[in-house]
Simulated assay, not measured.
Amino acid sequence: MSSSPDNRALLIAGPTASGKSALALAVARAQNGMVINTDSMQVYRDLRVLTARPTGEEEAQAPHRLYGTVDAAVNFSAGAWVEEAARVLAEVRTQGKLPIFIGGSGLYFKALTRGLSAVPPVAAEVREDVRARLESDGPEALHAQLALVDPVSAERLNLRDRTRIARALEVVEATGRSLTDWHSEGLPPLLPPEGVTALFLAPERDELYARIDARFGRMLDEGALDEVAMLAARGLDPLLPAMKAHGVPALIRHIRGEISREEAAEIGQADTRHYAKRQFTWFRHQLPEFAWMTVEEAGASLARALVS
């Protein structure tokens, strides 16, 4: 990482439980860095334990930004995150610190390095109307409606993909244009490619899955169930991102007495393992410029790169 200090940035991506946070904190302490959340679930203040956000002790060791800043009732988007990330990046540059973007949300990293489609915010009343129709009529009916106004999106979406069908339909109804049209008009990337060091932490799969299972168990012991109980009590739309965080739907079912704690844990663990598998696949195909390595290899590589 020998470019101008004003252009430097470190991107640490990887599946959940891969060791990203510890590595980012070590680099931030050694290199006058600021840790910037690049995870779509860790933005929510309601789920500190269940999303494995940094602890207060960790946050005291180096500056952290964009963690726990959004209420669970907000349908926070990648576009909204980019706006916040641009503000934080300006702050980092002013302070002369190294920006360390860390997380597992591929779309956020793609927005940093390649830009993002310019879909405008959807008015709350439009979103609520579409979601109400989704609940009353079902996803197949909304898919049929979508096929009339946005056949391109409808063709590529599964008939049971509730979230994406609702999203595509609400964009058309709010803006008069399809998602395909909006995706053709992009926002520029935040980071110049010449200053970026981009890593993807890739532990051995069986080891990673064992860590995921163990960590989920610790989360339950450390207050995750209480977090979800408070979230469930708010009666929020189940399609909101925070309500679909890994473990939340299953733990809500346990709170309602529908399944045991052990069954909820098994579902949460399985969902998280499946998500980790998707993260591997997504980064391999969507962001091949990220260098894949173990956390040990990454530590050694960064030690060399950041002093050069």
Results as ranks from 00 to 15, higher is better:
Leu66Lys: 03
Arg284Ile: 07
Ala24Ile: 02
Leu199His: 02
Arg261Glu: 09
Gln31Leu: 07
Thr163Lys: 15
Gly235Arg: 06
Glu258Gly: 06
Val92His: 00
Val248His: 06
Pro241Met: 05
Thr163Asn: 15
Gly103Asn: 05
Arg133Cys: 11
Ala214Cys: 08
Lys277Val: 14
Gly138Ser: 06
Leu146Asn: 00
Asp150Ile: 06
Ala214Gln: 08
His143Ile: 10
Glu266Asn: 15
Pro188Thr: 09
Pro54Lys: 05
Val82Ala: 06
Val130Asp: 04
Arg114Tyr: 03
Val149Asn: 03
Ala111Leu: 02
Ile259His: 05
Leu239Val: 09
Ala174Trp: 03
Thr163Phe: 15
Pro189Val: 00
Ala265Lys: 13
Gly115Asn: 12
Ile259Gly: 01
Leu179Asp: 07
Pro238Asn: 01
Thr272Lys: 13
Asp71Phe: 04
Leu191Met: 12
Lys97Val: 03
Thr197Arg: 09
Arg304Ala: 05
Gly33Arg: 00
Arg8Leu: 08
Ser3Thr: 14
Ser153Asp: 11
Asp271Lys: 09
Arg177Lys: 15
Pro121Ser: 05
Thr281Phe: 10
Arg256Met: 12
Ala245Ile: 04
Asp46Met: 08
Ala229Ser: 09
Glu155Ser: 13
Thr16His: 12
Gly223His: 12
Pro288Asp: 08
Gly103Trp: 02
His143Phe: 06
Ala13Arg: 10
Ala90Cys: 01
Asp226Glu: 15
Leu107Phe: 00
Leu201His: 01
Glu262Ala: 15
Ala85Asn: 03
Asn7Tyr: 11
Glu170Tyr: 03
Trp292Gly: 03
Leu199Trp: 05
Pro121Val: 12
Glu59Ile: 12
Ala250Lys: 12
Val248Thr: 01
Gln42Lys: 11
Ser21Phe: 13
Ala73Ile: 07
Glu140Thr: 12
Leu159Thr: 14
Met230Glu: 15
Val248Gln: 01
Ala78Thr: 03
Leu306Pro: 01
Thr272Asn: 13
Arg45His: 10
Leu25Glu: 13
Met293Asp: 00
Gln95Ala: 14
Arg304Tyr: 04
Glu258His: 11
Gln279Arg: 05
Asp71Gln: 10
Ala72Thr: 00
Leu112Met: 04
Leu148Val: 06
Arg215Tyr: 02
Ala72Lys: 00
Pro139Leu: 08
Ala303Gly: 13
Gly115Met: 08
Ala123Leu: 04
Pro238Ile: 10
Ser2Arg: 01
Met1Arg: 14
Ile267Gly: 11
Ala210Gln: 06
Arg93Ser: 07
Ala73Trp: 05
